[in-house]
């Protein structure tokens, strides 16, 4: 489904800020893989997701989605394959537009924008039922501006937008990190349900090891621009936090910042 071959990315090449963020990423995801990604700050998790989404071109290597080589495609063209939810709840929605308007934009992800009316009656009914499933009462606020919603509501909406038109690949970058713990749990549970129900292929970055272990069928650990650990199947199910911390220390040679990782 997703294939990264020897992907490299260095920021600000030639300046004093030069930073090798991805140093040869090889990764292959099968259809229906739900992969959690952990790693310390600056490990390159966001950079890997951005490389896949096409935010900027990579320096080396290739990326293909569902057998199509997308390495040379700009972000907006890759969007036909990819649904995204960002860390910042402000990023994924248009604040001054209504809930249904945002959903209508998302339903047409990757389609040509024609001169047809932006929303139909049947679509509106569809949005209503989908929003109802979120259980946040948003279905009765279809025309409310998204700017009026709380961070958690916005993330739930963004999640629905990212999956309204089934994506080949779902990218989630710490999408619950900016929320309070209770809301974060709600959003993560929603995520889990949506991914499993729709049998989506997903990459989910998280700082929360418990969540990383609880969700998904596969876990990646990144450090210094590389994937240093890749656990799946039965081994992943049996994984405990202490195992992860040990493996991290063993593989990277440093202690993981346990406070931010364990306590979150």
């Amino acid at each position: 489904m997703l294939k990264l071959r020897n992907v490299h990315k260095t920021f600000d090449i030639g300046s004093i800020n030069e930073k090798a963020a991805l140093c040869g990423i090889d990764l292959q995801l099968a259809e229906g893989d739900f992969v959690t990604v952990i790693g310390s700050n600056g490990a390159g998790k966001s950079t890997m997701l951005n490389a896949i989404a096409g935010v900027w071109p990579v320096d080396e290597g290739s990326i293909s989605i569902n057998g199509t080589d997308v390495t040379a495609l700009p972000e907006y063209k890759r969007a036909q394959y990819i649904g995204r939810v960002f860390q910042n709840p402000m990023t994924g929605t248009a604040a001054s537009m209504g809930i249904e308007e945002n959903l209508a934009l998302a339903l047409r992800r990757g389609d040509r924008r024609t001169l047809r009316w932006y929303i139909t009656k049947t679509e509106r009914e569809h949005y209503y039922t989908e929003l109802k499933k979120l259980g946040l009462g948003l279905e009765d606020r279809l025309t409310d501006k998204v700017g009026l919603l709380s961070g958690g509501q916005r993330q739930a909406l963004t999640l629905l937008m990212a999956t309204l038109k089934k994506p080949k690949l779902l990218l989630l970058d710490e999408h619950a990190a900016a929320l309070d713990p209770a809301t974060a749990t709600t959003v993560l549970d929603l995520t889990n349900n949506i991914v499993l129900e729709n049998k989506l292929t997903a990459l989910m970055v998280t700082h929360n090891m418990t969540e990383a272990i609880r969700h998904g069928n596969r876990l990646l650990m990144m450090n210094a621009g590389k994937i240093i650990l890749d656990i799946s199947g039965e081994e992943k199910k049996r994984l405990r936090i202490t195992d992860l911390l040990e493996r991290f220390k063993e593989l990277s040679g440093v202690q993981m910042e346990t406070d931010s990782v364990l306590l979150s």
Binding site: A79, L105, L115
Partner: peptide
């Protein structure tokens, strides 16, 4: 109120989100 027109409105509002929806 068309798909195109609302894409323009969204572009003025949040270009990052608009790109993620596959709009140039």
């Amino acid at each position: 109120g068309t798909e195109q027109g609302s894409a323009i409105r969204a572009t003025g509002n949040n270009p990052q989100m608009v790109k993620a929806q596959g709009i140039n």
